[in-house]
Design a protein around this nucleic acid. Structure first.
Length: 564
RNA sequence: CGGGGCGUGGCGCAGUCCGGUAGCGCACCUGCUUUGGGAGCAGGGGGUCAGCGGUUCAAAUCCGCUCGCCCCGACCA
């Protein structure tokens, strides 16, 4: 295509609204434009990239036998009420009414729709297994959209659903997906890894996230610097730095107005890790006492995983009412009738300091075994940088990452509540066992920008670039330049997607724009090289330059592409 | 939902504290010169200063309300 005929609105200056690199470059390179918070128009160049990503995903899905559907974006209240998610999804769901005042939503995901199809159409074990997928828009009224397409309110997702007879079948479908996903992200040119994850609202057993390291990411992942241990911070485990204080008798100490761990530690001239944090949580009106080391933080996702949902911190009033002391001075010693859950790091520890359940007093010398009864020890703490790896001797690091894909074993969660069954060989009715697998297309695009871009702009890998080759005649008023440019354009167009920059603008502008939009290969035709009968080939990613005769271009390009 | 920042030609910003009728750079249009990394000179067009209300002789500027956008947190298949 000729650049002069295309709509590629590049920007010279960075819009103030964009902070992260991918967001800035997507705007500057003319890939997207904002319409509202979390809502973007995708312009032709951006759409070409997404379609190429989509093509790779489609090929890999078809390869594992998946079948593509086109499913409704509008969904009825009844369907979502069946699984309880009409309520559970809360404000994240876009809701609307039709002219008959019937409640509808814009689907944020499609488990319900798929399960409904399955229960209506799947009768026998002979119909299984199935893998059904779609590549469509999803709608979520995110509380906080950010970084343009990294977290938008409408976005394109490839989601697939596996339907199997039993857990073994699910294992097979799940493995097929994990392998397909690895091929997809590899073909897209991303450096990625998988981590164990939290299943959240989806329920189910196994869950893995496909992550791309990036400071723009919203997820935090834990990595061991020696072995291959990797996990989402929500579920990560590590070995904390050891403590081991001397056993002492219990003793109250006056700590006027000292509430926070740092305040108490500073006042008593001890390290924060000698303190024991006492938190009161409420689960469905029942209080639960949580104990952690003073230098550790509670990971609520872990607490939820161990003792169930509907958790919240108690209000100051509730604390006073249940414990009889103010926040900051509460402790487990002498407390009765409340379930106490302590973090594993506290097991067997002694000589600790915690609240005395009396205003302005703490107790020191607390011995977990001697002075209180802990109902259960669980891993509740958030892993911190510097912990020792559980698998080896390595040190734990925490990095930001973009989640580009997620796989879940749903099991029978949806088939059970929606009664999606099949008849087995003996005619017995059984529940379909399901899995759910998502990929965010815009996130692949943005993660690629984050991971590959340099100071001059975007660097697309050949597999997803909007064009493979940029032909750049520097001076379109120079007849020999134009002649050679047009010839190359003709000659190479059967092998490459070509962007031909026929604009009558200055050379500098063409170079800057070309680098910005990140076309992998460039042929520059300028009078300087033409004097010796040469043109120039440049590789965007490495900035390597090759000076060749026009008739050698084809062969040289082939060699460059093959070596990539 | 809590905290912070911002809203002035298409883009980036100054002007706001201390009220006096809107300016700079880029982009755009015309002409001439220029042509290998976002050119030079000359001329020109374009702004209800987010919106509504108030104070004042006078409001981009002061006061009140509303809306929008971004960032941090909470939250999130």
């Amino acid at each position: 295509m000729r650049w002069s005929k295309l709509f590629i609105p590049t920007l010279k200056e960075t819009p103030a609204e964009a902070e992260v690199k991918s967001h800035q470059l997507a705007l500057k390179a003319g890939l997207i434009r904002p319409l509202a918070s979390g809502v973007y128009s995708i312009l032709p160049l951006g759409w070409k990239v997404l379609k190429r990503i989509e093509g790779i995903i489609r090929e890999e899905m078809e390869r594992i036998g998946a079948q593509e559907f086109f499913l409704p974006a509008l969904s009825t209240r009844e369907l979502w009420t069946e699984t309880g998610r009409w309520k559970d999804y809360g404000e994240d769901m876009f809701r609307l009414k039709d002219r008959k005042d019937r409640d509808l939503c814009l689907a944020p995901t499609h488990e319900e729709v798929i399960t409904d199809l399955a229960r209506k159409e799947i009768r026998s074990y002979r119909n299984l297994p199935q893998i059904w997928y779609q590549i469509q828009m999803k709608f979520r009224d995110e509380p906080r959209p950010r970084s343009a397409l990294l977290r938008a309110r409408e976005f394109i997702m490839k989601d697939s659903y596996s339907l199997d007879r039993d857990e073994e079948g699910l294992d097979r479908s799940y493995t097929l997906h994990v392998e397909a996903y690895k091929r997809i992200f590899t073909r897209c040119g991303l450096e990625f890894f998988t981590v164990g994850a939290f299943s959240g609202l989806m329920g189910g057993s196994a869950s893995e996230e496909f992550m791309v390291l990036s400071p723009a990411g919203e997820d935090e992942v834990v990595l061991c610097d020696k072995c291959s241990y990797r996990a989402n911070l929500d579920v990560a485990v590590g070995v904390p730095s050891p403590i081991g204080f001397e056993d002492q008798p219990l003793q109250e100490v006056h700590t006027p107005e000292m509430k926070r761990v740092e305040e108490v530690a500073g006042f008593l001239k001890v390290e924060p890790k000698q303190l024991m944090k006492s938190l009161l949580y409420i689960q469905d009106k029942t209080p639960i006492f949580i104990l952690l080391r003073g230098d550790h933080e509670l990971k609520e996702a872990k607490l939820t995983a161990h003792i169930g949902g509907n958790l919240r911190p108690a209000t100051p009033e509730e604390v006073l009412k249940r414990i009889g002391a103010e926040i900051g001075f509460i402790g487990p010693v002498g407390v009765e009738g409340i379930h106490i859950v302590a973090d594993l790091a506290l097991k067997g520890e002694k000589g600790l300091i915690t609240g005395a359940n009396r205003k302005d007093y703490h107790v020191r010398g607390v011995n977990l075994e001697r002075d209180l009864y802990v109902d259960e020890f669980q891993d509740l703490r958030q892993v911190v940088e510097g912990d020792t790896c559980l698998e080896c001797e390595g040190r734990i690091k925490i990095e930001k990452a973009i989640e580009v894909g997620h796989t879940f074993k749903l099991g029978k969660k949806f088939s059970k509540v929606m009664k999606a069954t099949y008849a087995d060989e003996k005619g017995k009715e059984r529940l379909i066992v399901m899995g759910s697998y998502g990929i965010g297309l815009e996130r692949i695009m943005f993660a690629t920008i984050e991971q590959k871009a340099d100071g001059d702009g975007i660097v697309w890998p050949l597999s997803i670039a909007p064009y493979d080759l940029l032909i750049l005649p520097l001076n379109v008023n120079h007849s020999e330049t134009v002649e050679i440019g047009e010839n190359l354009y003709q000659e190479l167009s059967s092998h490459y997607k070509i962007l031909y920059d026929d604009r009558d603008v200055r050379a500098g502008e063409k170079f800057k724009d070309g680098d910005l939009i990140g076309i992998p290969l460039r042929i520059t035709i300028g009078e300087r090289n033409l004097k010796d009968g040469n043109v120039e080939i440049r590789v965007r990613s490495t900035k390597e330059v090759f000076t060749v005769k026009p008739e050698e271009v084809r062969e040289k390009l082939k060699r460059i592409v093959n070596s990539e």
